[in-house]
Every structure is written in C-alpha cells, then in structure tokens.
Design a protein around this nucleic acid. Sequence first.
DNA 1: TTGTAAGCGTTATCAA
DNA 2: TTGATAACGCTTACAA
Lengths: 339, 339
Amino acid sequence: MVTLKDIAKQCGVSVASVSKAINHMPGVGQQTAQRIRDMARKMGYLPNAAAQALKTNRSFNIGVLLEDDDRHGLLHHFFVSVLEHFKMAMEEMGYDLMLMNRTIGRRTVSYLEHCRHSNLDGVFVACIDFFHPELQELAAAGIPLVSIDHTYKGHPSVYSDNVEGIRKAVKYAHKLGHRRIAYISGAPAGVTARREEGFRMAMAQLGLEVPQEYRVFSRYRDIKLTQKATARLLALPTPPTCILMPDDYASLGGIKAIREAGLRIPEDISIIGFDGLPTFEHAHPRICTVYQDVKTIGTEAARLLLQRIENKAQPFEESPVIVPVRLVKGDTVAQIAES
Amino acid sequence: MVTLKDIAKQCGVSVASVSKAINHMPGVGQQTAQRIRDMARKMGYLPNAAAQALKTNRSFNIGVLLEDDDRHGLLHHFFVSVLEHFKMAMEEMGYDLMLMNRTIGRRTVSYLEHCRHSNLDGVFVACIDFFHPELQELAAAGIPLVSIDHTYKGHPSVYSDNVEGIRKAVKYAHKLGHRRIAYISGAPAGVTARREEGFRMAMAQLGLEVPQEYRVFSRYRDIKLTQKATARLLALPTPPTCILMPDDYASLGGIKAIREAGLRIPEDISIIGFDGLPTFEHAHPRICTVYQDVKTIGTEAARLLLQRIENKAQPFEESPVIVPVRLVKGDTVAQIAES
DNA sequence: TTGTAAGCGTTATCAA
DNA sequence: TTGATAACGCTTACAA
C-alpha cells in the first residue's frame, strides 16, 4: 500500500506537505502541490480510511437500519427502493453505507454501541419497530439520524403524503360511483394513523358513512391476514363495493379472498392498493394504487442527513418532509351505478 | 468515548495489560485480567474499529457488490434474499457488510481501489456484469471473494443446481403429457448456459425434439422482452404447450402475452418459472417453478468466504458449491392428452 | 512555504 | 506477570 510517507520520500518533501497537497489545503506552494499530486496519482495512492477515521473522527460511513420482525428488512420492497435512491445520493457525496447489526466480534451490543464502535457519521432508519428501546436510545444519543415513515424528536424525517394519498384513492372510488368503501389498516404505526385519518376525513367530506364493520385490521405485507380481513368484509350483510388494501403486496391476499368468494375484480368488487412499485406494475390485474415517490423520499432523506452531519451546529427542518403522492388508476376499480 | 487508556488509569495498570486482558491474550494475571474486564464493562468500553483496523489491517468489513445495469441491484429479489442469509451468517462471525460503490470522497475509483481504501476483508459478488473489467481486476487482486452464479478462477462460488432444476421442470411437464416444450433464455451468462444445457439434455433424454423456433431469448427480470418472446412462441404454426420462463418475475410478461392472445393458463398453455421466492407464492395463478434455496446459498457463501479470510494460506474448495433445487408444482402446468 | 512532531486508539515487541 | 514503547497512516498546530 502506498502511503503519504512513500510519496513524501519520492518527492523529497515532508508528509505534512503531501497531506496538505492531496487535500487541497493551504500551506503548500502551487507547484509543489501539483508535483505531489501528480506523483500520488502515478503511485496509485489511496488514503487509508481507518487512519483518516481514527484521526478525524469521521468515517464517511452511514449505518442502515432496515430490519423487521423477521430480520428480513432487505426484502421490503418499498424501503429498499427508498434505500437505493438514498444510497445513490450519499455515494455522490462520498459516503458509504453499512448494514447495521448488533454484534461486535462475538458480543451482542446495542445499535448505539455498534454506531460508536464503527464511528458511523449518521444513521438511516426505516422499516423497523420504531419504538424499540434501542432505537429510542439511538435517537436520544444525538447521532445524526434520518427516518422514513416516522419522526424522532430532534431528527429530520421523510414520508409520503399519506393523508392525501388515501384521500385521492377515496375520491377516485367515489367518482366512479362507489359509496360503500372499506379500509383495511396495516399494523399500528404513524403511517397507519395518518392513512386512517385520511380515510376518515375523505369519507366525511364526501358525506359518506363508514360503518364500524368497514374498518378492519391487518398488517403491511401480510398476505394471509389481508386475505382473512377481506373475506370478513365480503361476508358482511352489506359488503363494500371497494376495498382499500394496506399495500399492493398485501393485496395479493385480498385478491385471493375475492377470487375464493367467486367474485371478479373489478366487476364485482374494486380494490385499491398502496405503494405503486414497479413489481406490480405488470401483474394482472394491474392494481389501482397510490404511488409513493421513492426517489424523492430517498434523495430528500440523504439531503437532510447530510445537512445534519455537515452542519451539526446549525438549526434544521424539524418538521418532517412530506413528499407528494400520485394515484395510479390501474384497472381494479370499476365504474358502478350509484346505489 | 472510553479508551484503553481510561481503563488503564482507573485500574492503575498499563494500556498494554488492558489490551491483553480485553482480548483474552496471555501475559496478564488471571485476577488482574478479570478486574480489568469488569472495569471495562462498567465503563462501557467499546473498541474503536478504526484504530483496530489501522493497527491490524483487518476491518471485519465485507464489501457487497450487488449492482445491475440500472444500478438497482438491491431490487433483485433473488440476490437480496441470498444476501440476507449471507448477512446473518457473517454477522454471527462479527463481520459487517458494506454496500460497495465507486467513489472515495468526490473521486471515482475502481472497486478494487475502494476495497483497499476501506480495508475490506472480503467481497461478496452477485448480480452484476461478472465480466466487467473492474471485476476481473478485483478477482485477480487476490482479495478474498465469493460469488453467486459465477465462478472466478481462484475463488470460491455458490449456485443452484441449474441443470437439474431445468431438468426437473422438463420432466414434470413431460409427465403431465407435454411434448412441445419451449424455453425462453435469460441473458447470456454462466447460469443461462447451464440452464440451456439442462434443457437440451432433458429434452434429449426424453426423446423430445426442440425445434429451432422453440429456443427464444429474453433477459432475466425483463417483463417486456419476455412478453414479446412469449408472443412470438404463441404465434408459431405449431406453438408449444408448455413454456419455461427465464424466472418468475419475467413470467409476468409471459402471462400478459398469453392473456392477450386470449389463452388461459394452464388450460390452453402451461408455464414454468424459476426462483420460487415467497413474493410470487401467493400470486394468482401460483406459478410452477424451480425453487432456489437462498438460505443455503447465502450461508454457504459466508462459510466459504470466511474460510478464505481466516485461513488465507490454506487450500480451499476451488470448484463451485452446487446447491440442490426443488420443483414447486403450483398450478400453471396442466395435465394434457399426449399429442 | 515548508517541515517537525504530537496524537488519534489500538496492538505487539521487548525489556524489566 | 507487567509495563514502556514503537508503530499503523493520517491530520494539524506550530515552529522554522
């Protein structure tokens, strides 16, 4: 490995000068600096990240916390899509992403400890039990952090305009003649509350009733539970004509239940999902869904986190950044006669 | 941050002793060692990864190379599933995973350079253009490396038994009466060659003809291209009764083409996919597919890489580890009368 | 403008 | 058994 010392020797200068030249710092002559940089390039010099981190307390590493109950966070398409864009934006600024865990050597530690051990400059949090005590600890520790779909006090966060998303879905169903609209919630969480709020508001604004039985509960990405919830709705004396699903993936369960009940989509029953990821874009039927702008969410998250890292003292946008959503009509909502 | 020095001061011993005690090295008395360790725990000591890496040239970090043409490697369900299991196995051994890229600060560098800069102990390679010159460079550099679905000379690798997988699929179709079986290939690559080989062999063994027109080409995960390829097959004077798709995801395109031709699955035409990931387990129709054992693949990859890292001098398994596959019958292959 | 030197936290050698 | 010390590669305050 080529070190500053090697370059210094070759150029007949001190390591200090080499360091300054390479980092474009003042305190070294134009020509010497150029000569040093040329030599560094010629010798294939690369800074040693460990040495830099040790000296400067900056690792240019960002921790990624993406872990659900089954420890399979990387399989959550929505969050991974956001992560992908977050990653690109961070890379452009010279940061690397590290998948966080809870071990150091053979020892089990907390996320915060792992953070400190690895000298992480910041953390990206998504798709995890946000209320886990270890996350509270992490958020309280003052390490720069950005979260998706949840807001920690004193930290920036980003999420879709969930209220507006559900509202758009309800309005669209209403426009096509639907009056009996049901909502299957995901597991309790900030997003869920906002979506439920959006549903309540939209229905109220349109002067529509929401019978208690139309409010059923499932979990995000849970096909089985969503299948059951859908079956329950279909079995009602007066079933809904349109069902809002927790998300596109979970809607596979809903679709199954509907098929098993001998009904057709959308002729007999309409459904609307949430997420709008490309995976389902080509599925049949193409689901009507609320598209979440993963690119903007990821990019904004990167921007906010960088701001926290690089201007640590500065004040920042405490309130979450809300990213607009878009309704994708698909073909799972039918025009029906008003009842 | 608590350092060895702090502990040394508290215990009234030297840093050297503290280091030895904490790392369970000989050269420090039983009791002193215990006293030191107790104090370390009490003070919340955590080793500084950067300092350790600088000193030992071991970072306990593994680079992950997962990047397709669109730079969206993280969205490839199969590889991410493998990665998930690889990650769990590596974490257990105290390693962290870092998503590799090609920047250091504002500079663009090669993967190898990034490796050296970050002192990575090894690299996990999957889902990437394996023949990219930078990967050749990386493989040639002698950094411990393990790859999925491709073998680099001098490095361990893991993949499914593709030959047997396709053979099982063909045999199953044959058993249900199919004789006119077509295969849509993914993009040229090692896996593709092996699957094509499996197809050729299985068909030959069963004494079945493979008309030239039954060998069409698409790309993995490419819905549009697979749709076109399928349409081409369906338009033949004597179309196949069963089509093997590049993978489950791509098969969405095939399904679309079949539907657009006014045909039903499996009554009019049967299809078989590849991968068998949970995502499609609940889709309708449930595709008949070749299940790849992502857990074993990921775990084996971890084992092989660790072996390379920790016994660098030792010889190792040069030949790829082949993981058995399983046929999942689903319901997209119909029993038909022999023609 | 240039160089000297200290120090980041750790490991490891060698002498006491 | 213990500790002093050098070294890993880098940055930076300060001296020349």
